[in-house]
């Protein structure tokens, strides 16, 4: 347990949130970040799903790391990830049917999310289960945070609402704004704007943390 709460473990959790964020620094998993960020609710559910899959896949692969034959390493990892994704998909279909319909194919596409395979190869195969699990949670969180930031910006400016699980669609832009001639920006809803928002976040992050800028 002491190992669980040490500084090193904490770093595993917090690093991916900022200095080693899978989306903005490692630039992995961009595709789904663009696709499911039109509304906040699917972004949250997608973030949680990816977090569960990365954490569990990291844990399982780490537990098996000494027994996995090297030659079929990638296949074993894929089977584990695919199985976890199907379980997540089935659970969503049972308990969050509407969201699962919105996410449609993107839940299945978690399998191809580079973050997961990337963490399995880079971390889980060489580290103990506890640390791997935390690394998975951390990277999943890092992914989820960026997804949610993008989704909040897109839904707020694109539709004037924020959709939260359990609360439904909240109209956060007051009617008075619209009466004054304020209009929702349809461009924000379209995919290119997601890419631009990711770009802005990366810019902002690098401006604040000079250490991330590559030396020429």
């Amino acid at each position: 347990m002491s190992e669980f709460l040490s500084k090193k473990s904490l770093k595993l959790l917090t690093d991916p949130l900022n200095d080693n964020n899978p989306i903005t620094v490692q630039v992995l998993g961009i595709c789904s970040a663009l696709a499911v960020t039109v509304k906040v609710e699917p972004a949250i559910v997608m973030g949680i799903s990816v977090m569960v899959v990365t954490a569990m896949a990291n844990l399982i692969v780490s537990l098996l790391r000494n027994s996995i034959p090297d030659r079929i390493r990638i296949i074993v990892q894929l089977v584990i990830v695919a199985a976890l994704v199907i379980i997540v998909d089935q659970v969503l279909k049972a308990y969050a049917y509407d969201v699962s319909k919105q996410l449609s194919v993107f839940v299945g596409l978690i399998i191809t999310n580079c973050i997961i395979m990337g963490r399995l190869e880079a971390f889980a195969l060489a580290n103990k289960p506890g640390a791997s699990f935390l690394d998975g949670i951390g990277n999943g969180l890092g992914y989820a945070v960026i997804l949610i930031i993008i989704a909040v910006i897109r839904e707020l400016f694109g539709a004037g609402t924020i959709t939260l699980p359990g609360l439904g669609e909240l109209h956060v832009v007051p009617q008075a704004f619209y009466d004054f001639g304020y209009k929702n920006n349809g461009l924000v809803i379209l995919p290119p704007m997601a890419l631009i928002v990711v770009g802005l976040i990366i810019w902002f992050q690098r401006a604040k943390n000079k250490g991330l800028i590559e030396s020429k």
Partner: peptide, 16 residues
């Protein structure tokens, strides 16, 4: 290894 893994995964998935 592959056979055992596939059987376990299949069992877990069909149960879910």
């Amino acid at each position: 290894y592959a056979s055992i893994m596939v059987i376990i995964v299949a069992a877990v998935l069909s149960f879910t």
